[in-house]
């Protein structure tokens, strides 16, 4: 009897020890992983670094990621920076800057927007959503108005 009792006691202690140990690991593992810095260091707020001053000569433009949607950053022929949503208000194609026309242009159905984002020719029914642009050193920071 006592031998059975001892084996029983040992088994329970073993079960308890290992399972509690494993539980502890199940708790600490996510915590340690949580503490490890993530791939992207910062949460993407309502502003984003859209580009560098040096990469945009006057009369040019580029597409940048703004959250999960594309935005368009342009530098006017006079050197000003402006940013808009790059989603055409007609059928949601991505617009582009046309240095030859000095306009924002949608290739899908030949929609034209002026440098203030206003729809001036072609199918687009509305102007492009305008963003706020700030230049900090070489960085161009775009944020929602």
């Amino acid at each position: 009897m006592p031998e059975v009792e001892t084996r029983r006691r040992r088994f329970i202690n073993f079960l308890l020890g290992t399972s509690l140990g494993a539980t502890l690991i199940a708790i600490t593992y996510p915590i340690i992983k949580f503490l490890v810095p993530p791939r992207v260091a910062e949460s993407a707020a309502s502003s984003v670094v859209a580009g560098k001053v040096s990469e945009l000569p006057p009369n040019s433009g580029k597409i940048f990621k703004f959250g999960s949607r594309p935005g368009i950053l342009i530098r006017t022929p006079t050197g000003e920076f402006r940013a808009f949503s790059a989603i055409c208000t007609h059928l949601q194609c991505t617009v582009q800057y046309r240095p030859d026309l000095r306009q924002i242009w949608c290739a899908c159905h030949n929609g034209h927007y002026d440098l203030n984002g206003r729809n001036i020719a072609g199918p687009p029914p509305r102007p492009l959503e305008k963003y706020v642009v700030n230049v900090r050193g070489d960085e161009i920071i775009v944020s929602r108005g």
């Binding site: 006691r9 308890l16 399972s19 199940a26």
Partner: peptide, 18 residues
């Protein structure tokens, strides 16, 4: 984790009985 936790609960139960 649920399996581990279940085993631990079982272990505690047996321990209390013991």
């Amino acid at each position: 984790s649920l399996v581990v936790i279940f085993l631990a609960v079982m272990g505690l139960y047996l321990k209390i009985r013991q």
